[in-house]
Amino acid sequence: MTKPLNVEHDSPSIAGHGATKSYAMQESMIVKWSLIAISLVFLALFLILPLVSIFVTALEKGWATYVASITDPDALAAIKLTLTVVLIVVPLNAIFGIVAAWAITKFSFKGKNVLITLIDLPFAVSPVIAGLVFILLFGAQGLFGEWLFQNDIKIVFALPGIVIATMFVTFPFVARELIPLMQMQGITEEEASISLGASGWKTFFLVTLPNIKWGLLYGLILCNARTIGEFGAVSVVSGHIRGMTNTMPLHIEILYNEYQFTAAFAVASLMSILAIITIIIKNFIEWKAKDE
C-alpha cells in the first residue's frame, strides 16, 4: 500500500428520517397540532386512563389493604404458578424459535413458506379455541382421556394443561422475530466461520448468536409478556382451582367477579408494572439494536 486509504469513503452513513424535512413535506401549524392533539386525546382515553385507573383503584383503600391483597396466600400462589409457567414455556418456545429459524433461514427447501404460515397459525386462533383443543385431547372425554385417567396422569385442570395451552398461544413469538432477522443476515458469516475451521456449535455460539441476540431478546420479552398475561386459553384448561391452578389473570377475574375490586386491581397493578417494564426493555432493545 503506497497511499493511505480514505477511511470514510464508503462507510455507511445513516440519514436521520424526519430530521431533514423539506418545505414540501410540512403542513401548517394548525394541522400539525390538531393531529398531535387528536392522537394524544385518543391515546389518553384508550391507553393512559385505563392504566392510571388501575393504580388509583388499587390504592383507593390505602397502602395496607394493597399490601394485604397482594400478600394474600391465594394471590401468592397465583404469582408462583404464573412464574412456574413462564419458566417452562418461555425457554421451550425460545429453543423452538431458534431451531426453526435456523432450519428456515440457513437452508433452502420446498414448502418453506407453508411452514412459516403454519408457525404463525396460533396467532390466528382464538385463545378460547387454543384451550378447547387440549380439552379435546386430554379432557375426560378427550382422545387420551381414558388412558390418562387409568394411568392417573392429570393434564387438564392441572399445571401441564396450563403450560401446554400457553405454549400453543405463545408458540410463534420468538420464531417470528428471528426468521426475518436471520434471513436478512444471510449465511456468509456462518460459511466464513466454518471455512476458518469452527464447528457447527462454535459457529452458532460465536457468530450466529451474537448477531441475533437483540432479536432473540425482543422475541423473549414479547413471549414472556403474553405468557404472563394469557387469559382465554388458560381459563379453559385451568379449572379455576383457587390456590392450585389459578394464574395471576385468573385470580384477578375471580376477585373481580366477587366484587373485591380493590384486591383485583391490586394484583392487576402488579401485572401493569410488569407490562411497563416490558415496554421499557423493549424500547431499550430497539434502541440498542439500532445503535449497532
Binding site: T188, E189, A192, I194, S195, L196, A198, L206, V207
Partner: peptide
C-alpha cells in the same frame, strides 16, 4: 470438510463478523 482442507477463503462481501473487532475477526480461526 472445508475446515480440514487448509484453505483460506476471502468472501465477496468479506463476511466479516460484524459484532467482533478487527482483532477478534483475524484471531477467530
Amino acid at each position: 470438510s472445508p475446515k480440514e482442507r487448509g484453505v483460506g477463503f476471502v468472501f465477496q462481501h468479506y463476511a466479516l463478523f460484524r459484532h467482533m473487532t478487527v482483532f477478534d475477526n483475524v484471531a477467530y480461526g
